[in-house]
């Protein structure tokens, strides 16, 4: 198939940037979206033009490094990662608009590459169980009901790609933050510091400049790992409970 690509080009963080149009020809429907961009880049290189920069790594939908806002949706038309999106989802002759994820907390680095370091800083603020290596109890000394373990797992599958932020009209990171808070609040190992964790992670999320939640549900609808909105409710619960019961005045 032949396609027209409208791609956001931006030399660096301080450049203003703008769209440029490119044509690609003879694209196979079996290609992944990123492989289609590989083809474009090979052509650009041959023409002596700077290739389009984009983030990607595992190309199997798990590392969370690929991003891209494709035709008005994070990771494109399917609820999956861009690397798992195949060209059979597009039509011959189509114009595809490709933008970087947009959020104040995700500044553009170059072209379609954005800086998602804010997510790391949020995890650093409390997304862990305080336990040192060694000196832990036998794994089976902490029985966890299967349903709880499964629910925690559902939250733990977050790949930190940032599609939730990109999809949210407020560029809110609540789904990401709540997934981690939920996972650890559900599990007995994480319950010990659940209150502190909720307070610290929410504070860091706010400090990074993410928006608030309007409960539109766009985040969950676009999440490649189908993280549920109930996580956000749980985070709210955790946070309000923490606010009124901890001794942090």
């Amino acid at each position: 198939m032949n396609l027209t690509l409208k791609v956001w080009r931006q030399k660096n963080a301080s450049d203003k940037g703008g769209f440029r149009e490119y044509k690609v020809k003879d694209i196979s429907e079996h290609m992944s979206f990123l492989e289609m961009l590989d083809v474009l880049n090979e052509e650009l290189l041959e023409k002596g033009e700077d290739p389009v920069h984009f983030d990607h790594d595992c190309r199997e939908g798990i590392c969370g490094m690929c991003s891209l806002h494709i035709n008005g949706k994070p990771h494109g038309p399917l609820q999956t990662t861009t690397c798992q999106l195949h060209m059979r989802s597009f039509n011959d002759g189509e114009t595809i608009t490709i933008e970087p994820f947009r959020a104040k907390a995700f500044p553009v680095v170059k072209d379609l590459v954005v800086d998602r370091g804010a997510f790391d800083r949020i995890i650093q603020s409390g997304g862990y169980v305080t336990v040192n290596t060694g000196g832990v109890p036998d794994a089976n000394e902490i029985p966890i009901p299967k349903v709880i373990a499964d629910e925690a797992f559902d939250s733990a599958t977050c790949i930190g790609c940032g599609a939730c932020v990109a999809a949210c009209k407020n560029a809110s990171a609540m789904l990401f933050v709540s997934a981690k808070i939920s996972q650890l609040a559900l599990l007995p190992q994480g319950k010990v510091e659940r209150k502190e964790r909720a307070e610290k992670m929410v504070a860091q999320m706010d400090a990074e400049g993410f928006g608030a939640c309007t409960n539109t549900g766009a985040c969950s609808a676009e999440c490649p790992k189908e993280i549920k909105l109930s996580n956000i409710a749980r985070m709210n619960r955790e946070y309000f409970t923490a606010s009124v019961t901890t001794e942090n005045v």
Binding site: K6, F19, H69, N71, G72, K73, T97, E99, R102, A103, K104, A105, A167, K169, N170, A171, S172, G209, F210, G211, A212, T214, N215, T216, G217, A218, A221, E222
Partner: peptide, 22 residues
């Protein structure tokens, strides 16, 4: 919330993932 996204998308298909009212 507006400040959280200083540069708007050229194309955004909100209707595919959320209700108009929301």
């Amino acid at each position: 919330n507006k400040k959280a996204r200083p540069v708007a998308y050229a194309e955004a298909k909100g209707s595919t993932n959320s209700t108009w009212a929301s």
